[in-house]
């Protein structure tokens, strides 16, 4: 599979940077706090790498995973997976006005995920001139099999993984957003990146 060239990787990183800025601005407004951003990391991964990341880690009791699929024109598609580290999901849910029970904690996480992924993907899609549509965000503790099945299909033999870190210190809240783009989506992505590179 064709790897991204250095120019393509640089351009993608910048597009991600802009999309990440939009998403964290929305999150910051929602939580009324400052979100700390880091430069996104991009690498090529195999399905086994992806599945290993989904394995629960005993040291991370508070980890929650939310996944949301996206698809656009010319085969551009992928999956946005959000890994949350919450020292106290209930406390955050209460502060945001959700009644205190487990179902509402889950609803809060899917709401936050929806803000992060749709804002991010709208911006990314806009920059790539790709109209995207989304599936509903789902908490993986309930439906991990769906994501695993998707990742195990042939088109996902290799995927591009983009890791973006959102950190909210005021709420002891951390979120790693992993954007997975399979081979098919990658070709379209590379074409669009080349078009952008030609402009400059």
């Amino acid at each position: 599979m064709a790897m991204l060239s250095a120019d393509q990787q640089d351009a993608l990183q910048e597009l991600m940077n802009v999309a990440m800025g939009m998403a964290s601005d929305q999150l910051a407004r929602y939580l009324n706090t400052l979100v700390h951003l880091q430069v996104p990391a991009i690498r090529l991964v195999q399905p086994s790498d992806l599945l290993a990341q989904l394995e629960p880690d005993d040291a991370e009791h508070q980890r929650q995973v939310v996944s949301q699929g996206f698809i656009g024109d010319a085969g551009f598609q992928g999956e946005a997976v959000l890994f949350y580290q919450l020292s106290n999901a209930r406390q955050l849910a209460t502060m945001l006005g959700y009644p205190a029970d487990d179902a509402n904690d889950a609803e809060m996480l899917t709401d936050i995920s929806s803000i992060l992924t749709t804002t991010f993907l709208n911006s990314l899609g806009g920059q790539l001139s790709a109209q995207l549509s989304y599936s509903a965000p789902r908490l993986l503790s309930d439906q991990q099999e769906l994501l695993v099945q998707r990742i195990e299909t042939p088109g996902w033999r290799a995927a591009l993984q983009v890791s973006i870190h959102y950190q909210v210190i005021d709420y002891a809240f951390q979120c790693e957003m992993v954007l997975l783009i399979p081979e098919l989506g990658l070709q379209t992505l590379q074409q669009r990146l080349d078009a952008i590179l030609l402009e400059y």
């Binding site: 940077n17 802009v18 999309a19 990440m20 800025g21 939009m22 964290s24 601005d25 910051a28 407004r29 706090t33 400052l34 979100v35 951003l37």
Partner: peptide, 9 residues
Amino acid sequence: ISADIQPEM
């Protein structure tokens, strides 16, 4: 010139 457009930033 930044993508980090948060009001606080």
